[in-house]
Design a protein around this nucleic acid. Structure first.
Lengths: 189, 189
DNA sequence: AGATGACCGAAAGCGTTTCGTGGTCAATCG
DNA sequence: CGATTGACCACGAAACGCTTTCGGTCATCT
């Protein structure tokens, strides 16, 4: 069996279940049925192993976001579906959710960095889609970096922040209606 | 001399300088030239004293936001000026800035509650202005609560969050241009 | 040569003690 | 006699030192 793969799977399991800090290298070695030293022949240290897992997760997320978009559908519909999917992923995916929790509770630096990197990746993804929309003539030319940023932050606020200060979450319909009437309305040609 | 007033001034000084947790009631009493017990004849406890100070600050902020708006100017201009002013206040005012820092570093519960209350107050203020805009026929009727929320969150993200992940702050012009081209464009009649 | 796990030092955890602080109230004062 | 005070108390948080844990290494053994 591929030892590197075994280690990756073991690490993913452990990070997802216990988070970054509470995962020990001994733990990972045990789950992977591998001597601890072996891990270090494939990964320089704990953080690099962690980064490898997170990279894998980012690709999953990207794939899921692509999966909910419909070829040929209008920009607004696909953009909304993609962002909602990524934010659903954010709150649902075991590892991602665990990391958000760990960042809030423990402030583990490695986790903070990784979360920031994921966010950057999402914004980059959104930016790409906006540029594609502009190229297709569906979207007004604009400051794509900033528009991607504000779109992500808006969705994040509505999907995730709102619930923290109000007793019930916003429905997807209300979110869709608001953005249709504000940001998207002025973005679309 | 008005003892209650003396205490308020002393408390404001101390909270602004040291934050909530690091301000001791002995400290406040000393600055106010008052016995510690006297404080408790005016305020039930430390938290109520704190709330009184914060309430005063909220009114200051409101006043400053009102001050930058121009009677008769278009909705967008006033809304932008008001929100920018409040966010400038947020980052500049000694007490407010100190509290944000304390919340991040110490997680003092009393501070978290107060910050949330201030945010709620700002959003309420924005909501009022939007409703006035609608009444005047300047703004499309809309879900005012949500629009106020998203406007505040958008400005907050651009003014405050952006700098945390990029090496330089956004210029006010770039912020103004972005919002003019997105949210405001679809809000205005 | 590749894998292993005993080993190392740094750092986190933990149980105990000390200290600082919010809040009270009997004594004091005007 | 009512307003003011600061010594006092209870208790939660810091300080301390001792123990354990854990990331990373490397001599040893396939």
């Amino acid at each position: 069996m591929d030892r590197r793969q075994e280690i990756l799977e073991a690490a993913e399991k452990s990070f997802s279940l216990f988070g970054y800090k509470a995962t020990t290298m001994d733990q990972v070695a045990k789950i992977a049925n591998v001597g601890k030293g072996t891990i270090y022949t494939f990964f320089a240290n704990k953080e690099e192993l962690f980064n490898a897992i997170v990279l894998k997760m980012i690709n999953e997320m990207r794939a899921e976001a692509d999966a909910v978009s419909v070829e040929g559908a209008p920009f607004e519909q696909n953009a909304h579906a993609r962002l909602m999917q990524m934010l659903k992923f954010r709150g649902t995916h075991q590892l991602y959710a665990k990391l958000i929790d760990e960042e809030k509770e423990l402030r583990t630096p490695a986790v903070g960095e990784v979360l920031q990197a994921i966010e950057k990746e999402i914004i980059f993804y959104v930016k790409e889609k906006i540029e594609k929309g502009i190229a297709k003539g569906e979207v007004f030319p604009c400051d794509t970096e900033l528009v991607a940023y504000i779109l992500f932050k808006a969705y994040l606020a509505l999907v995730s922040d709102w619930g923290k200060t109000h007793d019930e979450e916003l429905s997807e319909e209300r979110i869709a209606a608001l953005l249709k009437g504000t940001i998207f309305k002025s973005l679309l040609i």
